[in-house]
Design a protein around this nucleic acid. Structure first.
Lengths: 157, 157
DNA sequence: CCTTGATCTCAAGTTCACTTTAGGTTGAAT
DNA sequence: ATTCAACCTAAAGTGAACTTGAGATCAAGG
């Protein structure tokens, strides 16, 4: 079935797991490229599958599309990533993951100390009200950026 | 200054750290309640500050407003949460945090094994392409829900 | 040739948690 | 009485990452 070198949209969606709309969106954002058939339909080089796999992995690590685009732009052309490419990127990702993990652990540990110390009022709890004048003394807040949501709008398969 | 029992919007915003628009939004969503003055301006009971502190803490733990509302609805009325209330909720939160932490650790460890084993192609990497027929054999995907973003649209103070 | 399914474009809609805008009202001090 | 900060409402906007819808076209089999 794949005696020719170019993939159709259908093949790409089946093999990447992305919806056609997502693939078109990524193309519109410059994350991937497509050629066109005589009739205007997209044809993809096989390497687009690698790019899409990369996009998914990076998205799972929490990178925004802009960040992913920046990383993709660093891999010159469509060559297979070298060991050095991969090492650099995974270092980047690993750091991101470690940060996320530590932020969550701090939060969890605060929770522990709250329940441990019987801090029931939430009035001066470090994981909550930071700006109340009454709590101003206990400084060092543990702010966290937005964290993951249950059931995010991310369909599988 | 607080010889009377009811708080104005200004006092609430100053003491909670939330913008007035956010406070109004929470009221519209049924997370907090407000009375009205003769002229139609909001007045809040002091307990609203505790609710707002709770909302912030829960949001930091990653709960959606709907979930937070559900938890708030479990605390009957506006009584100060008992030790049991707090224990129950913090157990809930702690579980949420543990799940998030473990998901991230799995991802990080996959990253380690990728770079360790020289899995450079991303073709059958467990943290990426799960649906490609070529990777179908390596089952057990490590899907992750959406994770935190850098610089989320969350202003401080 | 005809049908059917795959694909196309473009605009608009979705979700979440708010903010911003526009224009009008209140209430406390002078 | 006047002023003016503080407050009000309703509707629309934001951003990320896509999806959905409408309506048209393409490609391949029969």
């Amino acid at each position: 079935m794949d005696t020719h070198d170019l993939l159709t949209m259908g093949e790409v969606t089946r093999r990447s797991g992305y919806a056609a709309s997502a693939v078109r969106y990524y193309e519109s954002q410059g994350l991937i490229q497509a050629r066109r058939s005589a009739g205007g339909q997209r044809t993809f080089e096989r390497s687009v599958l690698r790019r899409l796999a990369f996009i998914r992995a990076a998205a799972n690590v929490g990178l925004s599309l802009d960040e992913i685009k920046a990383e993709l732009d660093c891999l010159p052309g469509d060559r297979t990533p070298t060991k050095a490419d991969w090492a650099r990127m995974s270092k980047h990702w690993r750091r991101r993951l470690e940060e996320q993990i530590h932020a969550l652990e701090r939060l969890r540990d605060n929770l522990d100390s709250c329940i441990g110390c019987g801090c029931l009022s939430l009035q001066r709890c470090r994981i909550s009200n930071p700006n109340d004048a009454a709590a101003a003394q206990s400084a060092g807040a543990a702010y966290l950026p937005k964290v993951l949501r249950r059931d995010p709008p991310r369909r599988r398969a």
